[in-house]
Structure formats: structure tokens, C-alpha cells
């Protein structure tokens, strides 16, 4: 980006970065529940949380206290070990995926702070050159959480939930892979930094204008990847109680949802870096601010879609992914390849 040489990335800087990601994203996940309830309420002509604190803002604290102090119940016939580690898998993989996407801008800790002063904190914690694949692989591994949780809890709703997890995974995974292939061919790299630099300059350079089909396909697959409505088959209350999360309570239940919100943020970051120009400056607006705007927009879009659309059935998801989206993605790749060859 700039001609100035960036300071060296030290291991201390990476550790600080990891702590920042953990704390801020966890906090955003908590705040996200409040925003979600307020926006859904606004769209459905309700009030949402109002009683605790101004505008119901302290509802987050109340929910947090409830989650932390609730009894941690493990059902009698459950496989205890697997039941206990399943939520940790969802939360851990969500944060590992966040390690290789650019989350906040680079900065240097001011000198006056003791010990840590002068440390350079990078924008990407682990800048590997196959970033996109790593993030998608980690998010795919995150689905082991619901799968194991459902199978370990000796509950029929849980088993149905985990069977639906497998179905969902087998449906969307091929669409995600094929939809990002066309932009990857254009950019010629798997690194998110290269994607960002490819789209530097005016907003006419954004990949969404060259790859509108791929953008829509990626977004649809992203909704399935994060279990958002209309594809939240795993925990569809009206059909399977709460699916894989039926027997969970307290902080273990909370970890599933921290993981889900972290995944939403990851998908939002991926979509804005890959298709909407990333963290380049746009006119007079600074890059770090514009990417926060883009991420917020995608987060809002997920809530908007949740308020507007009904759930779909598992067979409809399979039909959509394999019979509609996958052929579209293949045609998109073919056309991109032909245009590139000419």
C-alpha cells in the first residue's frame, strides 16, 4: 500500500493482536444479540428489549449474567467428554478463522505505556498467502461443533440437528468453493492482501462489478455457512425444538452463539475484502472506517434477510445448492475463463 516500510511483526505484537480480536469480537457478539433483537423488533413493528437500562441497553449485561450463572447441565445418557468440547470447537474455529483475515488497521502502541510501548500490532494476525482457503476451511471445521453436540446428547432433536448439519455442509461447501474460484482466477492469488490491492483506487475497480454472479453466490453460501435464516436448519425452533443446542445451557450454549456471531463477522469481512474493495481509501473516507461500514452493512443485511424471509426445508436447500447455484457457478467460471483467454 504505502511506500513506507512497515515495522517488523514481532511475536508480542501477534499475541496482543490475538487478545484484541478475542475480547473485541466476543464483546461485539454480545452486543450483536442486542442489535439483532432491536432491528428485528423494528422491522416487525415491535419494541424489542426496553426494560433494562436506557433503550434496553443493559439487556446485554443481564443476558451475560444469566449465561454465566446458569447451571451447566449434562444429560444423563450423553457422551460427557464430546458433549463438553463441542461448543469449544465452534468458538475456537471461529476465532482461528479470524486470525488470517484483516480485522482492524495496523497500529503502534504509544511509547508512554510501560513494557508494551512501541510494539507494532499488525492488521492480520497470521498473514499466510492462502488466506481465503484457510478461512473457509476453518469455518467448515466449525460445523463439527453442532454435529458433535447433536450426536453426543442422546436426544432425538439433537440427532436430527446433527443430520441436518451434515446435509447443510454437503450442500453449501461446493457452492462456496466454486463461487470464489472466478475472482481468484481474476486476481491470480489466494491472499486477501492481494485481493485488496487488486481493487485499489476508485469504486469502479471493485470486483463486484466484474463478478456480480460470484458475489451473489458467495453471499448465499455465506448465509448457509453461518446458519443464518433462511438456512438455519440446524436449530429451527418450529421443527426441531432447538436442534443441536436442545440440551445445552449456560455458557456452553453461549459459546455456540459467540462462534456464530464471530462467523457472521468473518463472512462479512471476506465479502467486503473480496468483492467490495476491502480496506482501501475511498475518496476522502479513510480505509479503516470504510471497512467497518462495509462489515456493518453485511451484518445488517443478515438481520434484514432474517426479518424478511421464512425458513426453507433441508431438501429445498439441497435442491437450491446442487441444481441452481452449482451450475450457475460453473457457468460463471467458464465465462470468466473464456473472457480471460481472449
Amino acid at each position: 500500500m504505502d511506500a513506507t516500510v512497515l515495522p517488523e511483526v514481532t511475536s508480542l505484537g501477534v499475541v496482543i493482536k490475538a487478545i484484541i480480536i478475542l475480547t473485541i469480537i466476543s464483546a461485539i457478539a454480545g452486543f450483536g444479540t442486542y442489535i439483532e433483537r432491536k432491528i428485528l423488533a423494528f422491522m416487525q413493528r415491535r419494541l424489542g428489549p426496553t426494560h433494562v437500562g436506557p433503550f434496553g441497553l443493559l439487556q446485554i449485561a443481564a443476558d451475560g449474567i444469566k449465561l454465566f450463572t446458569q447451571e451447566d447441565i449434562i444429560p444423563q445418557n450423553a457422551n460427557k467428554l464430546i458433549f463438553q468440547i463441542a461448543p469449544a470447537i465452534t468458538a475456537a474455529t471461529a476465532f482461528i478463522a479470524l486470525a488470517s483475515v484483516p480485522v482492524f488497521p495496523d497500529f503502534i502502541i504509544p511509547e508512554f505505556i510501560p513494557i508494551l510501548g512501541g510494539t507494532f500490532v499488525p492488521s492480520i494476525a497470521a498473514d499466510i498467502n492462502v488466506g481465503i482457503l484457510f478461512v473457509l476451511g476453518m469455518m467448515a471445521a466449525g460445523l463439527y461443533g453442532p454435529l458433535l453436540a447433536g450426536m453426543a446428547q442422546a436426544n432425538k432433536w439433537g440427532i436430527i440437528g446433527s443430520a441436518r448439519t451434515a446435509i447443510q455442509f454437503l450442500s453449501y461447501e461446493v457452492v462456496t468453493g466454486l463461487s470464489i474460484l472466478a475472482p481468484i482466477m481474476l486476481v491470480g492469488s489466494l491472499s486477501l492482501v492481494d485481493f485488496n490491492e487488486y481493487q485499489a483506487g476508485e469504486f469502479t475497480e471493485w470486483l463486484i462489478w466484474q463478478q456480480p454472479v460470484a458475489f451473489v453466490l458467495f453471499l448465499i453460501a455465506g448465509f448457509a455457512e453461518t446458519n443464518r435464516t433462511p438456512f438455519d436448519l440446524l436449530e429451527h425452533e418450529a421443527e426441531v425444538i432447538s436442534g443441536y443446542a436442545t440440551e445445552y445451557s449456560g455458557m456452553r450454549w453461549g459459546m455456540f452463539f459467540i462462534g456464530e456471531y464471530a462467523n457472521m463477522i468473518t463472512v462479512a469481512i471476506l465479502a467486503s475484502v473480496m468483492f467490495l474493495g476491502g480496506y482501501n481509501d475511498l475518496g476522502f473516507i479513510a480505509g479503516w472506517f470504510i471497512i467497518i461500514l462495509k462489515i456493518s452493512f453485511f451484518f445488517f443485511l443478515m438481520l434484514w434477510v432474517r426479518a424478511s424471509w421464512p425458513h426453507i426445508r433441508p431438501d429445498q436447500l439441497m435442491w437450491l445448492c446442487w441444481k441452481v447455484l452449482m451450475p450457475l457457478a460453473l457457468v460463471n467460471i467458464l465465462i470468466t475463463a473464456i473472457v480471460m483467454m481472449i
Binding site: V130, L133, G137, A141, Y144, M151, A166, L170, E173
Partner: peptide, 15 residues
């Protein structure tokens, strides 16, 4: 990364 993606999917089918 390919190992990660391929085997996550493969073992998921075994599940």
C-alpha cells in the same frame, strides 16, 4: 489447507 478442507468434508460424510 487442502488437507484441512478435503478431510473435514470426508470425515463429515463418515459421520
Amino acid at each position: 489447507v487442502v488437507q484441512l478442507i478435503v478431510y473435514v468434508g470426508a470425515v463429515m460424510a463418515l459421520y
